[in-house]
Write a protein that binds this DNA or RNA. Structure first.
Lengths: 245, 245
DNA sequence: TAGTGGTCTAGACCACACA
DNA sequence: GTGTGGTCTAGACCACTAC
């Protein structure tokens, strides 16, 4: 067939195929880490040519959702440490490369969302959430305090113990234990004065200038998964950002 | 022909074509704003099929170097205001969209590079540079002080008057008057205390927490074009960052 | 050797811009 | 209508992986 539109509302075929693949990913049809069928077979399944199928997969690969390995197959991207460190952790030692941080749980509580978190997470302000305070140390120095808020309904049954004994990273925990896969995030940064509450764990004086990062992390369907406010001591570390394209 | 390798050292054809296009762009063969030949013709010129040619162009489009317009042609990206605002200006009013800033030149001088600028710009520390201090106002409020350093050899003959009477943006000036096209940048952010020097133009008290942004801007060939340190009052504005892919 | 993704072709038709 | 980019096909062969 030539230019068939049996598909959707005028969408090109590769877009339709891409949306179907996202659908399959979001519903757990292809779990994180699993491999997709071969491209030839996928093309047949969706009734498109291999070139068109590849265009759909190309797009998901460029978004970091799928990973192709020549000779082996196409895999659903996992939140392995390398990947996480690369995409979602932008704090580096002054002029150096990235280093993996260690963490210490400072607080874990179940509470009402409140105004700001509710807005960010698209839930009502009276919804239950988990509020987690986490200290990150880089090369044994306290550098970041994270204030994390997640919807209790999405992370039903999460406990402090489970949180502390997570494999490595928090997003890995979200994925492996709750099927919540973070695929993108948006951050807003400001400079602020350290409050007593944050100065202490960071081992700085009150009113010391800190970098504040307010992040929303989103899933496959652009649904907000996590709201996080980080306070960073940037005296020996910095936030690194590439402005491409 | 099938899998011809008359091209380069084992590089795929679309990569070879892409490199040739970059070469042509860097040497001014296709000036900023001009249109490229039609894809069919380009494909013939480079001896590849239209699909392969498109793959090369796709890549340059995704990097923001070329812009396609269906029915009209493919154009060399200009540093028009929209584009600049979008890619290289990440300061937004609290929770709002981007707004175009106005500027005021505070200082313009010719000086020696010094250690840090020399390292960033890949020149010797005794090289001549222009040091420019620029104030940016958003909705009439002073928000950013930029300290800009550029290699005097690259921007031979630049004058304060020329700088002040630039079309709109600084990168547009670089491009139109000196054929220096910025295609990407990397930034490092920290929180700091306002010095007297920066507190005054920003209309804040000394030691007020400011966001410091240290940026290197690069050209087609990954050559550093500009070194810039910005100081931002983030009490009513913030730095916005998308973590995709 | 068999199976996977990576590259490439030589067309075709569609959607859009402009005269 | 002519010319442009946008999409799509139905194969082919190459490079890599694993057995």
């Amino acid at each position: 067939m030539g230019g068939q539109l049996d598909f959707g509302r005028g969408l090109p075929a590769y877009r339709v195929v891409k949306d179907r693949l996202i659908q399959a990913l979001a519903t757990g049809h292809y779990p994180a880490g699993s491999s997709l069928p071969a491209e030839k077979q996928l093309a047949e399944e969706h009734g498109v040519s291999i070139g068109t199928l590849r265009k759909a997969v190309d797009s998901l690969v460029s978004e970091g959702i799928l990973i192709r390995q020549q000779g082996k197959g196409t895999f659903v991207s996992q939140h392995d440490n390398q990947r996480l460190l690369y995409y979602y952790f932008h704090i580096v030692p002054q002029g150096q490369q990235k280093v993996r941080p260690t963490t210490k749980l400072l607080r874990f509580q179940r509470a009402r969302a409140g105004e700001e978190a509710a807005e960010r997470l698209h839930i009502s302000s009276s919804s239950w959430v988990f509020r987690i305070r986490n200290l990150l140390l880089i090369q044994a120095k306290p550098v970041i305090v994270d204030e994390i808020v997640i919807d209790a309904a999405r992370f039903d049954g999460l406990t402090a113990r489970q949180f502390e004994s997570r494999p490595e990273s928090i997003y890995q925990l979200y994925e492996s234990d709750f099927s919540q896969t973070v695929v993108r995030a948006s951050e807003r940064l400001r400079a602020c004065s350290a409050s007593e509450e944050h100065a202490k764990p960071l081992d700085v004086e009150a009113h010391f200038p800190l970098l504040q990062i307010r992040r929303v992390a989103y899933g496959f369907r652009d649904d907000p998964i996590e709201w996080r406010v980080s306070y960073v001591n940037t005296s020996e570390h910095e936030y690194f950002s590439e402005l491409d394209s």
